[in-house]
Design a protein around this nucleic acid. Structure first.
Lengths: 263, 263
DNA sequence: CGAGGGGTTGATCTCCTTCAACGGAGGTGG
DNA sequence: CCACCTCCGTTGAAGGAGATCAACCCCTCG
């Protein structure tokens, strides 16, 4: 599937868009960029001029401390835009890196701007998307700030599982997660050594296995409980949303899904 | 100053708006609500129908764990909208609470929607505002996940200081912060006892005093260093932004500041 | 074959928590 | 006006979750 279609699919999870709006998104032009594992896509201080749509692989945003310690603040899987907010705030002060070999589509801001100004509902969909991001950030604060190691790690796996499923990349109990234990440590604010021990506990206590970039959750309910996980913050369940138009209803508009090849 | 004007002022820190757009924001109608300290304004599971502009006092968003522990995920001071994203995502799954006695203006989503659809640049300003929020969230993850207690607390004080200054509520080294040590603990993922000890260290080591809801920073540079604080993530320094219009430039538009009383 | 990255294990250390108690300020009611 | 309560800040002692340090193994890859 082409990256634009992946991205559209993701937007449609939460936003209702007309056929015309969908076409506009599908017809975005960008340059495909392959990124090696551990290479940074964006670095602090940059003023970026394009946004990145992840089309393959795993990408993460992180902050680096002076002592070298790094803290991942979010993961982005295929279909996610790791950078969309850069349209309204192009100056970044964090890094985005490829966790494993990845492919991204770089879409110039110029085009996204046009989209936003021509199609207000697309701007709102982008904003909504950013809101989900923020909601995940907030949950991570709670995760890292107020939970024990085992719960943090369990929570992370639950999140990635559900997001992968929603993105059509697997099921919540069996999905690819190309991160090392060390990267999980960076995401959960723990050390690799301790992550290792906890993952062994989780393996022993049945709920999951994590090996070679694949997560297999044997007992979803247990893992939910261990991670104190509640899915609402991902905003996946609600039906896609759209603000009622100014003049009244959206009568006469079509919201059918546009097949990806129809561009 | 009326809350709408405070809010506008905040938006103008980062977004450039025409006189007309500014007027539209100033003419928002809402209901003023006084909230006692420790009372919740929004609770998880709610589907809110209005957004809250903080006009006086201190407000915070938090998550509650099953064991009763709570994690604050952000503070909102006068002028901030603690809830703006609810326009595009009205279902909330966290709480918003008044840290001290506070006054908020509740603006119905209906009006904000109208604003967004009639004035695309306002939608973008709102999105930009949400992006700042997200940026702060991300920084908090790094703060809580990768720093020691002293640095976390120092960082928090730096942030609130700068934000207060930007909002015209004091200077970065002398500002009101009506939180208890216990609430600082909830924000930094520490225990009240430990926060107390660390604050004493900070007092002894000169950089700051924090008593009776007022922070006095005696040595800003030291505090920055201790907290490993870098202000860019607040997006305060850059000049206000505006996407270039579709047709071309913004020729003929006025971006002068509208006096608050001129509505 | 050697190098390097990732996973695993054990021993030790430490930052922070937990538990428990006390003092002071402010508010309330007798 | 004082007794009383509650919330907040403060202090001490003990305990624990996780960090740190240092190996070692396995696999892949050049």
């Amino acid at each position: 599937m082409q990256p634009q279609a992946q991205f559209l699919q993701r937007l449609l999870l939460r936003s209702k868009l007309t056929v015309e709006e969908q076409r506009a998104i599908l017809s975005l032009q960008g340059t495909v960029q392959r990124v090696q594992a551990h290479r940074d896509i964006v670095s602090p201080g940059e003023c970026v001029e394009s946004a990145c749509l992840v089309s393959r692989g795993l990408v993460a945003r992180y902050d680096q401390m002076l002592n070298g310690r790094r803290q991942l603040t979010s993961f982005y899987i295929a279909g996610d835009a790791c950078d969309l907010h850069s349209v309204v705030a192009p100056k970044v002060n964090w890094s985005i890196t490829a966790i494993c070999d990845a492919t991204v589509l770089r879409v110039p801001h110029e085009q996204l701007r046009q989209l936003c100004l021509r199609h207000p509902h697309i701007a709102l969909a982008f904003w909504r998307d950013g809101t989900v991001d923020a909601s995940i950030f907030a949950k991570w604060i709670a995760n890292v700030g107020a939970k024990q190691a085992k719960a943090r790690i369990a929570h992370l796996f639950c999140e990635i599982g559900l997001r992968s499923e929603a993105a059509g990349l697997g099921s919540r109990t069996n999905f690819e997660f190309m991160a090392t234990q060390s990267q999980v440590a960076d995401a959960t604010g723990l050390t690799p050594v301790h992550v290792n021990r906890v993952i062994q506990e989780l393996r022993a206590g049945e709920p999951l296995s994590f090996r070679g970039g694949r997560v297999l959750i044997k007992n979803w309910e247990t893992l939910l409980a261990v991670g104190e996980f509640s899915a609402d913050y991902l905003m996946l369940s609600a039906s896609p949303d759209r603000l009622p138009g100014v003049g009244g209803m959206d009568s006469g508009m079509s919201f059918a899904s546009v097949p990806a090849n129809q561009v």
